[in-house]
């Protein structure tokens, strides 16, 4: 059984009188345990919509989104998931440790576990020196890093990351990539959405390309490169989107 699965997942946004926009169109995905799966696509292609549907923030118009065989609103399932949203926003009056404590308590973690995990995670994301700083004083990169730490507070089996390197400098990006690979080696399944092709190229075992709400390609990078006679992921990305636009003019 796939760890993350979508079946004919469709989301249509109702934007007023007779105005509808297709956010996601009958998407079928199966992500196996231990994978680092990357969702690629231009802005507005449906990447974030797909992740929000998986986590129950949005509701599907039709189809199903399953994690560990459970629906997006299942509380037990959510205990195994860590989520980092795009441009993470947090309660800016809290400090990093307070934020981690707040989320840790929502996971029913024991105070001792929260204290231990907080120390480890702040060290891991390099925010130990900013312990006493309220989040409103954090830079964009620091927010991204505390967000990553917050997504790991429950030591999740599944990590869902929406644009995890936005706002990070090149060193931060590399550190995040290394961290994702390490977490994957420890057994975590990672689903990440990104439009940074190089990031996806370096860490993902399989990719899906979304465009205009459709899943237009799915497979290993190696197979897709051969299929499109492309030399790089960028080349593959452009060719797949052009092919889709030719076959399905807007």
């Amino acid at each position: 059984m796939a760890l993350i699965e979508t079946k004919e997942l469709t989301k249509i946004y109702e934007l007023g009188w007779k105005k509808r926009v297709v956010g996601l169109n009958r998407v079928n995905l199966q992500i196996e345990e231990g994978e680092i799966f990357g969702i690629l696509g231009p802005n507005g292609s449906g990447k974030t919509t797909c992740l929000k549907l998986l986590l129950g923030v949005l509701f599907p118009t039709s189809g199903e989104a399953l994690i560990m065989g459970k629906g997006p609103l299942d509380v037990e399932m959510k205990k195994n998931v860590g989520f980092l949203p795009e441009n993470p926003y947090y309660y800016d009056y809290l400090t990093g440790p307070e934020l981690l404590k707040f989320y840790g308590r929502l996971f029913d973690l024991a105070p001792e576990t929260i204290r231990k995990r907080t120390g480890e995670l702040l060290e891991l994301v390099g925010l130990n020196d900013a312990k006493r700083l309220a989040l409103r004083h954090y830079s964009k990169g620091m927010l991204e890093r505390i967000g990553l730490a917050a997504s790991l507070i429950n030591d999740p089996k599944i990590l869902v990351l929406d644009e995890p390197t936005t706002g990070l400098d090149p060193i931060g990006c590399k550190e995040t990539r290394d961290l994702l690979l390490r977490l994957n080696q420890e057994g975590k399944t990672i689903l990440l959405s990104s439009h940074f092709l190089s990031e996806v190229e370096r860490v993902c075992s399989r990719i899906a390309i979304f465009h205009r709400g459709n899943l237009i390609e799915l497979g290993t990078l190696k197979d897709l490169l051969v299929q499109y006679e492309a030399s790089t992921l960028e080349d593959l990305f452009v060719k797949s989107i052009e092919k889709f636009d030719q076959q399905h003019p807007a």
Partner: peptide, 10 residues
């Protein structure tokens, strides 16, 4: 948008 993170918790 703090709700996104909150609703993803159990």
């Amino acid at each position: 948008r703090t709700i996104y993170t909150l609703l993803s918790k159990p």
